[in-house]
Each structure stands twice: as structure tokens, then as C-alpha cells.
């Protein structure tokens, strides 16, 4: 076992992926000498050279567009979008090209492109550096959307994402980059499209992904002191959704709260709530509740603690789901 931060775990995962397959490339802004603004690609250019770890011009559409071209030529590019709020110039290439080209070719083309996006708030950043744009991408058929929440998953998930022949949007919870955990570098991870029950419980199910998994685990620990037995599921894969694990859990607990940082309205939680309601209707003791961001743009950082779901807001929702 090795102690790694989440950022270092992604770094190690990328290193392994690049060692394993010479077609794997890393590309993005400042990913070379600097090692990325979060140091996720630290040391990779030194080890693998400038042809494989490519400092690109400062244009996100160009990063994704040229990555598509490189993938057409047999490469497996891992693109870094520096911050969540900067992915939108690349949205056209991701949505109209990356997601749809394999189908357009009737399967002749595979686009094994990974788009890494540090996501979420909680780091006191300026505007556009704290967003949670996952629903834009889960809504786009042809993409797989992943969100890692801890170092061990980050290490295996990034490697599995690189090996996958489909385009993947890979969210990394930036405020958890410095969280440390023991990682077994030899252990295989859970398959890429599987959810994980990270805490077993019998009274209520919390569904979370990325940065909110830790928040939900803290809330579950606090709830236990109040005598509530809370189950926490880390989705890991948002598209496809590992629905069976979710349905099995809520069928058992009868209550469900969905937690994410993105605005609740039209957020990914709406999809989860709808699916849980459809599949667990006769077992539900209460409607599926959602905790998330408000219907406002992400606030200035002095207010972000109000915007971001925290332990108390999750516990409040747990109380409400028991009040029915």
C-alpha cells in the first residue's frame, strides 16, 4: 500500500497508462513543465517527452478537436481542461463531434479520448473555477461520464478510462485533490461503469459522486450518533448509470436523498430521483429529496459555503425524508 493524494493517484494512474501503451498522450494547457495547475501531470513530460505530453496552445476547442484527429490516427489522448468553467469553448467539439463520430461511421471509428475536468467548488476561487457541468455531458449520448471521489478509485478509474474505446468525460473533485488515502497500486479497481456502496445502512440511501461522497460519509457518521443508519452510494459512473445497485439499496431503505454541487433544477439528481421513483415506487416511504446548488450562478467565494451542500444541509434533508 502507498499513501497518495487524489492528484497524485491520477498522476500515477496516467503514468501507468502511458507505460502500458505508447499511443497514450497527455495534452492540455500547462501540462508539460509545470505539470498542470494542480500538478496532476507532474513529471510526465520529463518521463515521456514533449511528443507524448503536449503543451497546447490556449484554446479548448483546439485541444479536443486535435485530440479527435489524433485518436483517428490511432492515439489515445488524455486531454486536460484546466477548470470546469473553461470547458465550454470545447463543448461544440465534445457534443457534435467526439460524442457522435463513432456512430456516424457505423462503428468504423473509435474515439478513445479522455477529457479530464477538475470540477466543483470549495477552494475559494474566482468565477468559472468552481462549477459542476456534469449534466451537460450526461445529457449527450455517445459520451461516458465518470466522477472519481477518492485516491484509490482515481488511480484505477483513470487507467480504465484510458483503456476504454469510448470518449469519456472524467471529473476530478478539485477540493479533494489533496485528500490522502492508502492505495494498493497492484489491485484492480471496480469496473468502470459500476457504482460502489461506500457505507452500508438500512434507514436511508444517500446518492452522491465526486466531491459530495466525502460530505455524505461525514453526514452519515453524524446521523449514526442520532441513531440513523445511513447508506452511502458513490455513483462513480454517471453515464451509464449502475441503476441496479441504486434500486436494490432504496428498495431496502425506502428513503433516498440525492446530493450534488450542481444546481438542483435540471441537475443530474433529477434523473436519479425520477429513476428511483419509477423503480422503487412501492417501497418508498417518502419522495426522493435533492440537495444541491441553488438556481443561481456559482456565488463569489465568500458565499460558497452557503451554496455548497455541507454536512448540515445533508442531515436536514435526511430529517425531512424521515418526516413524511
Amino acid at each position: 500500500m502507498t499513501t497518495l493524494t487524489l492528484a497524485k493517484a491520477v498522476n500515477e494512474g496516467l503514468r501507468r497508462a502511458m507505460e502500458e501503451d505508447s499511443k497514450v498522450l497527455v495534452m492540455g494547457e500547462d501540462v508539460g513543465k509545470l505539470g498542470g495547475v494542480f500538478r496532476v501531470t507532474d513529471g510526465l513530460q520529463k518521463e515521456f517527452g514533449e511528443d507524448r505530453v503536449i503543451d497546447t496552445p490556449l484554446a479548448e476547442s483546439g485541444i479536443i478537436g486535435t485530440a479527435i484527429g489524433l485518436a483517428l490516427r490511432g492515439y489515445r489522448p488524455v486531454c486536460e481542461i484546466q477548470f470546469d468553467g473553461f470547458v465550454f469553448p470545447a463543448a461544440d467539439q465534445i457534443i457534435t463531434q467526439l460524442a457522435k463520430m463513432p456512430l456516424r461511421s457505423l462503428g468504423a471509428i473509435k474515439l478513445p479520448v479522455v477529457v479530464r475536468i477538475p470540477c466543483g467548488g470549495g477552494i475559494g476561487a474566482v468565477e468559472h473555477h468552481s462549477e459542476s457541468p456534469e449534466a451537460y455531458f450526461t445529457h449527450t449520448a455517445g459520451l461516458r461520464v465518470m466522477a472519481c471521489s477518492n485516491p484509490a478509485d482515481a488511480y484505477t478509474m483513470i487507467q480504465d478510462a484510458v483503456r476504454c474505446d469510448d470518449p469519456i468525460i472524467f471529473f476530478e473533485p478539485k477540493r479533494r485533490y489533496w485528500d490522502k488515502a492508502e492505495v494498493d497500486l497492484a489491485a484492480p479497481g471496480l469496473p468502470l461503469d459500476r457504482a460502489r456502496t461506500v457505507r452500508q445502512g438500512s434507514d436511508v440511501t444517500l446518492l452522491a459522486y465526486g466531491p459530495m461522497v466525502k460530505t455524505c460519509l461525514s453526514a452519515a457518521a453524524a446521523a449514526e450518533e442520532e441513531g440513523r443508519n445511513v447508506e452511502v452510494i458513490d455513483l462513480r459512473s454517471l453515464n451509464p448509470l449502475d441503476l441496479d445497485v441504486l434500486v436494490e439499496s432504496v428498495t431496502r431503505t425506502g428513503r433516498c436523498v440525492v446530493v450534488h454541487e450542481a444546481p438542483v433544477f435540471s441537475g443530474f439528481g433529477a434523473e436519479l430521483a425520477a429513476r428511483i421513483t419509477e423503480h422503487c415506487f412501492y417501497n418508498l416511504e417518502a419522495p426522493v429529496l435533492r440537495v444541491g446548488g441553488f438556481s443561481t450562478p456559482y456565488p463569489p467565494s465568500r458565499l460558497e459555503d452557503h451554496y455548497l451542500p455541507d454536512l448540515d444541509r445533508v442531515l436536514d434533508a435526511v430529517d425531512r425524508v424521515f418526516a413524511y
Binding site: 476547442s61 483546439g62 479536443i64 478537436g65 486535435t66 485530440a67 479527435i68 484527429g69 489524433l70 485518436a71 483517428l72 490516427r73 490511432g74 492515439y75 461544440d92 467539439q93 457534435t96 463531434q97 463520430m101 456516424r104 461511421s105 471509428i109
Partner: peptide, 21 residues
């Protein structure tokens, strides 16, 4: 390559492909 309908998108694909070559 396949026809690209979104105007100009394919220019980046072509350059990426050339970088691969």
C-alpha cells in the same frame, strides 16, 4: 473522412490527424 456538417470542425480533426502522422 466522413462528411462534417458543423462548419469548420473538421479542420481541427485534420490537424490532429496530421500531428499523429
Amino acid at each position: 473522412h466522413l462528411y462534417t456538417i458543423v462548419i469548420g470542425s473538421q479542420t481541427l480533426h485534420g490537424v490532429g490527424y496530421a500531428m499523429g502522422a
